[in-house]
Amino acid sequence: MALYSEKVMDHFRNPRNVGVIEDANGIGEVGNAKCGDIMKMYLKIEDGIIEDVKFETFGCGSAIASSSMATELIKGKPVEDAMKLTNEAVAEALDGLPDYKMHCSVLAEEAIKSALEDYESRKK
């Protein structure tokens, strides 16, 4: 049996929404290099809708795939929907992750939330 599902490998090999948004109005970074995973999310939100999202990730295959899938799940969605994104939803959309890799989906959820919080705090 392969280590990862086809979906994970697809998102790892062809990550969606990779890169930087120069005029992002919400940026979140979680993880640390010591543990081997860092995710950075850039959001461009207009009228409460996530118009664009991009990510950069330092990490293993499932970390890259989780970041990619998380961006797909929130792109074009209202902010309140994105706030409800869970790590389980990310893992499920990837057709599952090995148990010891579930923390990658947690990081993806946290990275999105961190970027959304940054957006909220900038509004004030």
């Binding site: 790892f12 543990c35 330092f58 990490g59 293993c60 295959g61």
Partner: peptide, 21 residues
Amino acid sequence: EGESLLLLLDDRGIAASSGSA
């Protein structure tokens, strides 16, 4: 990070290993 390096090398037909966590 080493694991993603290994997976991409595997895609290119190189079997190697890493000390990554």
